[in-house]
């Protein structure tokens, strides 16, 4: 990569982080009153909103209903002003459809869908500002929203991205690091069991390095879990104070 040094000799990244360090995460549950569950997350400059409706009756064609479990329906959209260059469509393009499918796969692995047969759970995520790691931010926001809606899950789903630069694995890539075009890995983890709900890697990476990158992403996802857990506990504490017991 010409001109831009992603990792300095002292081991610092472009934005001053260490290799395995996460960006600042701030989150809030229960942003909207009308939805069944909602959450907002900021990971550095990436900002995402997630809203959950359901479980409710299947909308539209009854033929889609599953006799033994709930249907998880996801839509990913990203605001037209979220990226540096203005986007023409917020959703419906190829990337958004793919993201929707990935989210669906992730949450089907985590939600106890067999408890709600013949019903539907809608998860809508909206990226307000994109600065790398949008998939991870969406998964983390959606986890909080599903928890806010009170839908039973096996575990949290915590996601994080990782990359590989100059023999070092970097966790939680920013837009600059993503744009440099190195190998990228997106990982969604069920932190308690250490199971992987989604794993995706682009570009070429030597098999020997994969373990390090995977390890970096998993460790970062565990870090995300600690933070999300704190947010949930804080939210529950506040809610119980408001209820008066």
């Amino acid at each position: 990569m010409a001109g831009l040094e992603l990792l300095s000799d002292q081991g610092y990244r472009v934005d001053g982080r260490r290799a395995g360090e996460l960006r600042k995460i701030q989150a809030r549950m229960g942003v909207f009153a009308q939805a069944d569950g909602s959450a907002y997350i900021e990971q550095g400059n990436t900002k995402a909103l997630a809203v959950v409706y359901g479980p409710h009756e299947i909308r539209g064609s009854r033929a889609r209903a599953l006799p033994d479990r709930a249907l998880v329906n996801c839509q990913y959209s990203s605001a037209t002003f979220s990226t540096g260059e203005r986007k023409r469509r917020p959703h419906g393009d190829r990337k958004s459809c793919e993201m929707g499918l990935q989210l669906r796969q992730t949450f089907e692995a985590a939600i106890l869908t067999q408890l709600h047969p013949r019903s539907q759970i809608d998860i809508y995520v909206q990226v307000l500002q994109a600065d790398g790691g949008t998939y991870a931010a969406c998964v983390n926001a959606a986890t909080l929203a599903v928890l806010d809606a009170g839908i039973p899950m096996r575990d949290f789903v915590c996601a994080c991205s990782a990359g590989f630069v100059d023999g070092t694995a970097l966790a939680d890539l920013s837009h600059v690091e993503e744009a440099a075009g190195g190998p990228q890995l997106a990982l969604a983890l069920l932190p308690a069991s250490g199971q992987i709900a989604l794993l995706e890697m682009d570009a070429r990476l030597h098999e020997d390095h994969l373990e390090h990158v995977l390890e970096a992403a998993a460790q970062a996802a565990q870090g995300v879990h600690t933070l999300l857990d704190r947010v949930v506990r804080q939210h529950v504490r506040e809610a119980s104070i408001l209820l008066g017991d």
Binding site: Q34, R59, S77, T80, P90, D122, Y124, Q126
Partner: peptide, 16 residues
């Protein structure tokens, strides 16, 4: 001007 009625507002706005 462009107005995006996102599915966040109501599930009816999903897709188109």
């Amino acid at each position: 001007f462009f107005v995006d009625c996102s599915a966040n507002a109501t599930p009816e706005f999903e897709g188109r």
